[in-house]
Each structure stands twice: as structure tokens, then as C-alpha cells.
Design a protein around this nucleic acid. Structure first.
Length: 416
RNA sequence: GUGAGUGUGGCCUAGCGGUUAAGGCGCCAGGUUGUGGCCCUGGAGAUCGAGGGUUCAAAUCCCUUCACUCACCCCA
């Protein structure tokens, strides 16, 4: 038997209701903040992701779906959403538009990982990018959008974690002092942390092992080692967030797994939940556009996992609207009713009325059962006797009353 | 990549060595000769994830494998 590939799922009826709900809230919120939708290809040249995410990150080293196409090009299924948007910004000369350019996306993301709760090989993200402005007020607005989006969804008790990891001027010095600090304790670190000391010093701050916590507490924080410009930027951001009454917590352990981040980084997490605590995160990437060959252009963005949102909506018991029921169910009685029913259904559909019909071979009783189940308010019964008189039977399922009406009257009766 | 747990009809579950694998939901049909929701009756549908082994006998025990779940790692 064929199965969906590991870490992928079919989104069936119930799932569709969640996706519709989330997408609608996302689009609505983005409109309020001036973001336009962008759709980029599901795959890009591999180089784009290596360059942006960072050669030594886990994503690039072991999680990308990379293959060679028939022309010998190395192609990669999008493992994140920011780099493609930056590529599009540069490619289409969006630097010539009024800045910042604000774009949002809803799309599939692919990473080759072991699936678990809140983690899939193909998942979906809603994300947005504001490119071409360095002022901290934009950072505040970007964070606010994320926060209001979750509010609109009905998610409660979220926490906002904030940090600044500096810029290319002050970060190297900070990383060096962090490395020196950890080298003193090298012997006592867990194996993962010994590895991180070599590969990705910032991630040392993210270790969950109890034994490593004491070192984290004593480690120098990036926010305390900023250059004056970054310091000022971070200070302003905090002030703006207070003004907006967004309850943030500065967490000097907050680091992100992609190399392109500068200055502001933030995550939004539910108070409770499994191992995959973060439902959304983002930050500034002031050097990325230039790194990808564009002009020196500051930018900031955010992305959130749709599946993780759904997990939390379910945990918190947030109900989402189901797909609307068909307005009318057409039942057929008698062998020769199909022709008249088909014609009637076509006419009503062209008039904008949604119609469901059962299989022609079913008994009227079975059709009524299905009509009830699908939630249609009205059932039209097309039968020999009515057809002969140019009529149909119209039954209101909510009141269980029915009457014979002419085809001419029908449209008017279905209003309301 | 590492570790642990789980795999029984479409879904949920019982059975945990011994005759035709049980129940609920759902599905189909009948209980009105053209009519729903409740109720009643009947039916279809499972080589018990797959492969191998132990045994007179295996859904039940063992091995392998695949998948799922959870956790590590990493991240949304």
C-alpha cells in the first residue's frame, strides 16, 4: 500500500478548516500593516540557501532536499522563506520602490528531519519580510504584527522573547568572549556543547541539559556586549514595545539557527506545550541582501509554522469555522428524474446557489439521510409527478415543512 | 543521525499462545407504495503493518524490516 512519504500529511477536511482560518487571519492582518503577498518557486538554486542560511548550519549541512536536475543544476526545495523573498527583491529591482518593501507569504517548507510532534518534513509557514528600513520602529511594528495575528487567531498566554545579537561590528568580539568563557569550562560540558563550541558558539546558550544551565547563567549575554549603535537600536525597540504594550522578556539565551540574523531576534512561544515550543520567530538580517548580491539593504522578517499554530489552537480548544454546508440538496425520485435534476442543478449553480446531489441509484430515503447529514437547509425533490407539472417539492429541513412550488418561484423561495 | 514506545476492518478499541478475530462509530440495505434526524433488523468490510522464526497450534512469543508516536539534535 502506498503511503504519503515520511513526515508529510494529507490535509483533509478538518485540516482544511484550520488552514482556511489561519490563512484568512494572516491575509487580514497583513493588509492592516501594508504587506502584499508574494509567491516564490518551491525550489531555488541550492547556492541561494547555502549563502543565506549559512554553510555550517544544520539546515544546510543535513536537512535540505537537494537534487540535480536534468540540466545538471543543483536545486533545493525551499527550507525557509526569507532567502527566496530577498532574491526576488533583488531580482525585480524592488530597491527602486518606496522603502520598506513589505511582502508576505504562505507556503510549504521542506526539511529532511526525523518527524515528531510539531515537526514535519513538509510543513507550512506564514511569514513576512520588511525590506529597506533600519529604524527600530519597524522592528516594533513587525513584532506587533506577529502578536496581533496570534491574538486574532484566539491563541492565549503567549510569551514574547527578545534579544539583540549585535551586528558585524560588535558580534565577532562578543562571540570571542563567549568562546573564551566556555573554553574555561570545556571539560564539564556535554558532548553536544563541546561540538557547539567548535561549530556554532551561540547555540551553547540554547542547551537544555541541566548540567549546562549553570554555565549558561554565567555566560556573557550578547545584549550586554553591543556596540553603541546596536545598543541604541535595542533600547529604542524596547521603548517602542512598551509603548505598544507588548509584554516582552529579554532573554540573553535567545539565539536563532540561521546565520543571517543581526541585532533584533525574537520568538513567540506558548506557555505550555511539547518540545517544539516556538511557534514563530524572526529577526533582523541587515547584511543578507548585500550578501546575496544586492545593495546594502537592512531588513527584518518573521515566520510562523502553521502546523504548530494548529497544535496550539487544538490544545487551547479554539474552534475554527467549518466549511459552509451546501445551500440546497437535490434529491431525485424515479428513474427519469436525473435529466430534470441535472438541468435544475445547473441553473441554480449559475445563479450562485451551491448544490449537492446524491448518487442517482440511491433510494429517496437514503438521499434524505445524506441531505440531513450534509447540513443543507433545503432539499429539492425532483420527481415524476412534479416534473410533469413543471414543479418541484421544496423541503425546509429546519422546520420539516415542504410544499410544491413551480420552477419559476423556486429562486425567490431559496432566498432568505 | 541517536534513544524509547506503538502498529487489529475507513475511524476508535477488545482480544495478549488454542476452534469461523469481538464491539462501538461510520458505510450500505430493509423496517412506507417517493422523504432526514431517534429506534430496530440485516449486510459489506481485517490475509491482526510486512517478512522470517519458535510451536502440534501465533493477532498473541522471538528476530528483521517498514511506518507511526514521543524525546534528543535542530527548528516553524
Amino acid at each position: 500500500m502506498y503511503q504519503a512519504p515520511r513526515g508529510t500529511t494529507d490535509i483533509l477536511s478538518e485540516g482544511q478548516a484550520y488552514y482556511r482560518y489561519i490563512e484568512q487571519k494572516a491575509a487580514e492582518t497583513c493588509r492592516l500593516y501594508g504587506y502584499e503577498r508574494i509567491d516564490t518557486p518551491v525550489f531555488e538554486n541550492t547556492e541561494l540557501f547555502c549563502r543565506s542560511i549559512g554553510e555550517k548550519t544544520d539546515i544546510v549541512e543535513k536537512e535540505m532536499y537537494t537534487f540535480e536536475d536534468k540540466g545538471g543544476n543543483s536545486i533545493t526545495l525551499r527550507p525557509e522563506g526569507t532567502a527566496p523573498v530577498c532574491r526576488a527583491y533583488i531580482e525585480h529591482g524592488m530597491g527602486n520602490q518606496p522603502q520598506p518593501v513589505k511582502l508576505y507569504y504562505l507556503t510549504s517548507i521542506f526539511r529532511y528531519e526525523r518527524p515528531q510532534a510539531g515537526r514535519l518534513r513538509q510543513h507550512h509557514q506564514f511569514g513576512y519580510e520588511a525590506i529597506g528600513e533600519k529604524d527600530a520602529s519597524l522592528d516594533a511594528e513587525v513584532i506587533e504584527l506577529a502578536w496581533r495575528f496570534y491574538e486574532k487567531l484566539g491563541l492565549k498566554e503567549l510569551k514574547l522573547l527578545l534579544n539583540s545579537i549585535g551586528c558585524k561590528k560588535c558580534r565577532p568580539g562578543y562571540l570571542e568572549s563567549l568562546r573564551r568563557y566556555y573554553q574555561q569550562h570545556q571539560q564539564q560540558l556535554c558532548n553536544d556543547c563541546k561540538n557547539r563550541l567548535e561549530k556554532n558558539v551561540l547555540r551553547l546558550l540554547d542547551c537544555k541539559k541541566p548540567a549546562c544551565q549553570t554555565f549558561i547563567d554565567g555566560a556573557p549575554g550578547s545584549a550586554d556586549n553591543l556596540c553603541p549603535e546596536c545598543e541604541e537600536h535595542f533600547g529604542l525597540l524596547k521603548k517602542y514595545l512598551e509603548q505598544l504594550k507588548l509584554p516582552f522578556t529579554v532573554d540573553h539565551r535567545l539565539v536563532r539557527g540561521l546565520d543571517y540574523y543581526t541585532r533584533t531576534v525574537f520568538e513567540i512561544q506558548p506557555q505550555t506545550g511539547g518540545a517544539q515550543s516556538t511557534i514563530g520567530g524572526g529577526g533582523r538580517y541587515d547584511d543578507l541582501i548585500a550578501e546575496l548580491g544586492g545593495k546594502d539593504t537592512p531588513a527584518i522578517g518573521f515566520a510562523t509554522g502553521i502546523e504548530r499554530i494548529i497544535l496550539n489552537l487544538k490544545n487551547q480548544g479554539v474552534a475554527v469555522p467549518a466549511a459552509p454546508a451546501p445551500q440546497v440538496f437535490i434529491a431525485r425520485a424515479g428513474d427519469d428524474a436525473s435529466q430534470a435534476a441535472l438541468k435544475l442543478a445547473s441553473e441554480l449553480r449559475q445563479a450562485g446557489i451551491s448544490i449537492l446531489q446524491a448518487a442517482a441509484s440511491k433510494s429517496l430515503k437514503a438521499q434524505m439521510k445524506q441531505a440531513d447529514k450534509c447540513g443543507a437547509r433545503y432539499v429539492i425533490i425532483v420527481g415524476r409527478e412534479e416534473t410533469a407539472a413543471g414543479c418541484v417539492t421544496l423541503r425546509d429541513m429546519t422546520t420539516a415543512s415542504q410544499e410544491t412550488v413551480t420552477l419559476a418561484e423556486l429562486a425567490g423561495r431559496l432566498q432568505d
